[in-house]
């Protein structure tokens, strides 16, 4: 589902943000990407979304060669990748329902599809009662659920999450993670970048650890694993 071969990324003339990264992620896997701030997690995620192009190496996402992909085809790649962020990125002037529906509207889905899929995915994330609420009427955890619903409503084969629990308390984070777990059970490949130690240790999933741009560990049923 995701293949990276000898991938390097250098910003300007600084030392590389990513260095010789070789990673294979199979369909249906659940993977944690861990590391300190500045270890290259965000660069990793943004390369997969083709927000950035690598300085060298090859990246294949959902069967597409990301480096050779024509600009105008990028949107179609992104329809295969759901994205969740630390800051939710919800539109404040739209309700939960409208925020999720927006993601389908702008890729040209029919009204019928929107009317059936949006309530369904909001039920999946446990927000069937909050469809008419605006983001500022929701708690942080609820807002993140809306954002996950938006990322998943189009049933993408890949879900990327960059620090999804960074703004949430531990109890709420647990709920979010179990939601990712449920989504992963439907066959979706899930990649979560985080430095939430307890979460990673409790879930016992595959862990890819980054340090100064190098992959220092790639371990199945791993733990966060830093002493500090």
């Amino acid at each position: 589902m995701i293949t990276m071969r000898k991938v390097g990324k250098t910003y300007g003339t600084d030392k590389p943000a990513l260095h010789d990264v070789d990673v294979d992620i199979e369909q249906g896997e659940f993977v944690f990407l861990v590391g300190h701030s500045g270890s290259g997690k965000s660069t990793f995620i943004r390369l997969l979304q083709r927000e950035l192009l690598p300085s060298r190496g090859q990246i294949i996402v959902a069967g597409q060669d990301v480096v050779k992909l024509k600009n105008w085809k990028v949107p179609y790649l992104r329809r295969n990748i759901g994205c969740v962020f630390q800051d939710f990125k919800l539109l404040p002037n739209k309700t939960s329902y409208e925020n999720v529906a927006f993601a389908l509207e702008v890729i040209g889905r029919s009204k019928h599809v929107i009317r059936t899929q949006v309530p369904e995915v909001l039920r999946l994330v446990g927000l069937e009662d909050k469809m008419g609420s605006y983001p500022d009427e929701l708690s942080g955890g609820e807002q993140q659920r809306v954002s996950i619903a938006r990322a998943f409503v189009n049933r993408p084969p890949i879900l990327l999450a960059d620090e999804p629990t960074g703004n949430l308390d531990p109890a709420t984070s647990l709920g979010i993670m179990s939601l990712f777990n449920r989504i992963n059970k439907t066959g979706t490949t899930v990649l979560v970048a985080t430095h939430d130690r307890e979460m990673v240790d409790s879930m016992r999933k595959r862990v890819i650890a980054l340090e100064n741009g190098y992959v220092v560990r790639d371990q199945h049923r791993g733990v966060y694993g830093y002493g500090d």
Partner: peptide, 17 residues
């Protein structure tokens, strides 16, 4: 810009944006 960012994120085509 917020809407545009989300449109790009969820794969709205360039012409749509």
């Amino acid at each position: 810009r917020k809407e545009i960012g989300i449109m790009r994120l969820v794969g709205a085509s360039n012409s749509f944006i």
